[in-house]
Nucleic acid binder design. Sequence first.
DNA 1: ATGAAAGCGCTAACAC
DNA 2: GTGTTAGCGCTTTCAT
Lengths: 359, 359
Amino acid sequence: MDVARLAGVSQKTVSRVFNGERYVSAEVRRRVLEAAEGLGYRVNGAARALASGRTRSIGVVALGTALYGPASLLIGIERAARDAGYALRVVNTLEGEAGGVAGAVESLLEQGVDGIVVSEPIDEGEVSVGVDVPVLVLGAPAAFGGPRVVVAGVGAQLLACAATEHLLDLGHQTVHHVAGPGRWFAARDRLEGWRAALVARGRDQPAVVEGDWSAASGYAAGRELVGEGDVTAVFAANDDMAIGLIRALAEAGLRVPEDVSVVGFDDSPVSAYVTPPLTTVRQPFDAVAREGLRLLVQAIEKPDAEPAPASDPPVELVVRASTARPRARKAPAGRRRAAPRSRGSAHAPPTGDGPPVTD
Amino acid sequence: MDVARLAGVSQKTVSRVFNGERYVSAEVRRRVLEAAEGLGYRVNGAARALASGRTRSIGVVALGTALYGPASLLIGIERAARDAGYALRVVNTLEGEAGGVAGAVESLLEQGVDGIVVSEPIDEGEVSVGVDVPVLVLGAPAAFGGPRVVVAGVGAQLLACAATEHLLDLGHQTVHHVAGPGRWFAARDRLEGWRAALVARGRDQPAVVEGDWSAASGYAAGRELVGEGDVTAVFAANDDMAIGLIRALAEAGLRVPEDVSVVGFDDSPVSAYVTPPLTTVRQPFDAVAREGLRLLVQAIEKPDAEPAPASDPPVELVVRASTARPRARKAPAGRRRAAPRSRGSAHAPPTGDGPPVTD
DNA sequence: ATGAAAGCGCTAACAC
DNA sequence: GTGTTAGCGCTTTCAT
C-alpha cells in the first residue's frame, strides 16, 4: 500500500502497526500512523479475512421479532460481541419459514464468520449443516447437532418454577398456564418449570392454553379460561400475554388479584405500570448473552480449553400487585378463617416495587 | 479450486455457475453443482469481496434498545435488505457514548459494506467520516453531512399532528405533550407535529414534559402533570410513556378518558390490551424500512438515477378507549349543552378496535 | 526491529 | 460457451 511507501517502510510493518504487534519502534509507528491519517487509510477487512482465515465477526441467527425478550437478547449479544472485539452479522428467520435456521447458517458461513449464535431457535427438526465453526445455542438445550456446539441460557425452568411456587405459596390450590407457542424451546422450558412445580407439590395440572406471545393471544386465552370457572391463579409465559389475559378477566368481571392472581414472565419495562402492576419474573438477558458469548469466544480462540460450565443466573421474582392470596374457597369442607385478613391483604396493594415514588 | 478440477472445467466457469451468469451450458452447470455438492464447497465471501470490491452487505448503526419502535425498524431493515440480496452488519451505539455514530460508521467501513443505514440517530453534532458509500438516514432529516446521503421515514410530524388534532376535534381546549428525549430526532419530530397542530388552531402550547420513552418516565411525567390541575388531554410520544402516564393519573384519582384523554404513539402490540385500551397512532415501520432500503439499494447499484422521492405513508390513527370528549368545562362563560350526551359517549366505550371478539 | 516473497480464493478483462 | 492471465490488499513464513 502507499501508506508503506509514504512512511518509508515495508508493507509488513504497516500491518504490524495496525495489528498492535510488538517489535515496532515508536518512531516508525508514529510515521506509519501519520501517513495513514493523511491518506485516509482504512484497513480492508475482506483482504485481512482472506489472508488470515479469520473474520473477527460472529453471525447471529434470530427470529425477526420485536418481542421484548428476543430483542433484549440480541442487544446483549451485540454488546458482548463488540466488547470481545467481534462484529456482528445478523440473519433473521421468519417463523414458519422452511429450512430457516439451516439456510441462515449456510448464508452466514458463506459471508464468513468465526462463530455462530443461534438465538432462541424454534423447533424444526434436526439442523445440520457442514458447520466448521463453533456454534452457541441460546435458550435451547442441545437443539443443534454438531461437534463444536455450546449451550447457554437454559435456566428458564427454574424461573418458571419460582413463578408457579409463588402462587402456590400464596395458597392457591393449583395454577393454570398460558404457554407460548409449542414450537419454541423457550415456551417448552417454561411449561416444564410450571409442571415441575405442580408435580413437586402433588397438585393437579390443568389443561394448558397456548398463545403466541402476543397480548392478543393472552386475551384469547383469558376468554377461554373464564369459561372454566375455577381458575384462581394463572402463570403466563410472558408479560404481554399476561396483560392480554388480565384484560379478558376484567371484561368478564373478574378482578386481579382479588378473584384471580396472575404472574407474567420477563419483567418487561411496562409491566410495572399496567393495571394492576404485574408480578413477574425477571429474565437476566444480559447475563445470559454475556455468559454465552464468553463460551463462544473461548471456543473460537482456544478450541481446546474446557467449556467451563455456565453458572445458573439468580432467580428474581418481582412481586407487584397482580398476585394475592385466593379468596376464601367457595364451599370447601371445613372453611378456615374466612374473609377479613385474607381479603384485606389481597385488596390491590399499592404498587409493589412498581412506580417509583418520585418525591 | 478443486471443484473446477473435479468438474473438469476452469475456475472461471465455476465462478459463472455460482453467480448465475449466463452462457453456461446446462450440462456443465450440472457437473459443477454436483462437484461442489460432493466437496461441500461454499463460496468464500471475503475472497469475492476482495476481488470484486463489493460485499453485498449493508451496515446498520442503531441504538441498542429493545423499545418497540427501533426494534421493529431494525427487523424491517433486515428483511428488506435480505430481500434485496444484502446481508446485514449491525453496530449499536449506546446512548451517550462519545463519537458513537462516527465510530460505528468507521468500524462498518473497515469491515466492508456497500451502504450504511443510520437508524433513528440521536443528536451529536455534525457527523462526518470519510464515507465513500451511500448512507440512508432513517428518521432524521439531513442529520448527516455527506454526498451520497438519502433520507426516509420522516413522516412522524404528520402522525403527531393527527394525534393532536384528534384530541382537539373531541373538544379539548389544548393538548399537553409528554415528549421523548430531546436529543432524539424522533422525539423532536413528534414535538413539532404536536406544536404545528396547536398553532394551526391558535391554541395555547402548554409546557412540555420530557421523558425517556420508558413507562417509568411517563409515570413521572404524569405526576408532574397532575400538579398542574387543568390538564384534560395529553399526547405522549410513545405508547410506553402513555401507559406510565395513565397509571400516574389513576393514582391521582383521575380517570382516563373521563377526566383526561390520552393518546399514545406507535401502536405497540400491548396498547390494545392495557386499561383503558390506548388510542394511538400506528407507525408504518415496515413501509419506512422498505422504502428506505429501496432508495439505498438504488444509490448503491445505480448511483446516477434520480432518488425518486419517498412517498408519505398513510396516517393511521387507531381510536380506542383512552380518548373522549372533555367533561363539561368547569366554569366557562355561557355553558353549552352540559352533561348527558357528552358524558354518555365519554364513559369508557367498550374497546375500540382493541381485543378482537373471538367468538 | 524490519523486510521480501508468496499466496489466500475469488472476479475482471480479455481472449478464443 | 469457455479458458487465461492478472491482481484485489492483506498476512504468512522465513530472512536478516
